[in-house]
Each structure stands twice: as C-alpha cells, then as structure tokens.
Computed example of a mutant assay.
Amino acid sequence: MNEILVRYGDVTKLSKMCGCTIQSVRLALKGYVESDLATKVRKEAISLGGVEIKRRRRVI
C-alpha cells in the first residue's frame, strides 16, 4: 500500500476527526495497517489535500 503525505498539523486533525490516536493515524498513512478505520483515515487525508506517493525504500 502506498504512503500518504499530509501537511504539518493534519495528523492531529485526522485523529480528532476519526476519533483515534495519533499513532493509529501515522500507521494508516504509512500503509502498515489495513482496517475500516485505516481506510477512513486515508480517505479523509486525501480530502484534506494529502498526496499519495509510492513507498520509499530504505537503503542501508
């Protein structure tokens, strides 16, 4: 699943809108969790102006 980038402060707004923790929003936006709540968070993030990008890979 792709990552969604949002502006500074939008993670807090999303957590209040969806009634969940900030950590839940972060995990949903990173694409690590697939649930009904994560889908709701991702849709709201895109409606707030979030941008979906291909997940970056870390090279060590």
Rank of each mutant, 00 (worst) to 15 (best):
M1H: 09
M1P: 03
M1L: 11
N2Y: 04
N2A: 07
N2V: 14
N2G: 08
N2S: 08
E3V: 15
E3R: 01
E3Y: 06
E3F: 02
I4G: 04
I4S: 02
L5G: 03
L5M: 10
V6L: 10
V6Q: 09
V6R: 08
R7E: 03
R7S: 12
G9W: 10
D10V: 08
K13R: 01
L14F: 00
K16Y: 13
K16L: 10
K16S: 10
M17I: 14
M17H: 00
G19P: 10
G19S: 11
G19Y: 14
G19V: 10
T21R: 09
T21H: 11
T21C: 13
T21G: 15
T21Q: 12
I22H: 12
I22C: 06
I22Q: 03
Q23M: 15
V25A: 02
L27G: 14
L27N: 13
A28L: 06
A28F: 07
A28K: 04
A28C: 05
A28N: 10
A28D: 14
L29P: 05
L29S: 04
L29V: 00
L29E: 05
K30G: 07
K30Q: 06
Y32F: 14
V33N: 04
V33W: 12
V33H: 04
V33A: 01
E34A: 03
E34C: 03
E34M: 12
S35L: 00
S35H: 06
D36K: 12
D36A: 08
D36T: 06
L37W: 13
L37Q: 06
A38I: 13
A38N: 07
T39Y: 03
T39V: 02
T39M: 13
V41F: 02
V41H: 03
R42L: 03
R42T: 01
K43H: 13
K43P: 11
E44P: 12
A45K: 01
A45G: 03
I46H: 05
I46A: 08
S47W: 11
S47M: 13
L48D: 12
L48F: 11
G49F: 15
G50I: 15
E52S: 07
E52C: 04
E52T: 11
I53C: 04
I53D: 06
K54V: 00
R56L: 07
R56C: 08
R56A: 02
R56Y: 14
R57H: 13
R57V: 05
R57A: 04
R58D: 08
V59T: 06
V59A: 02
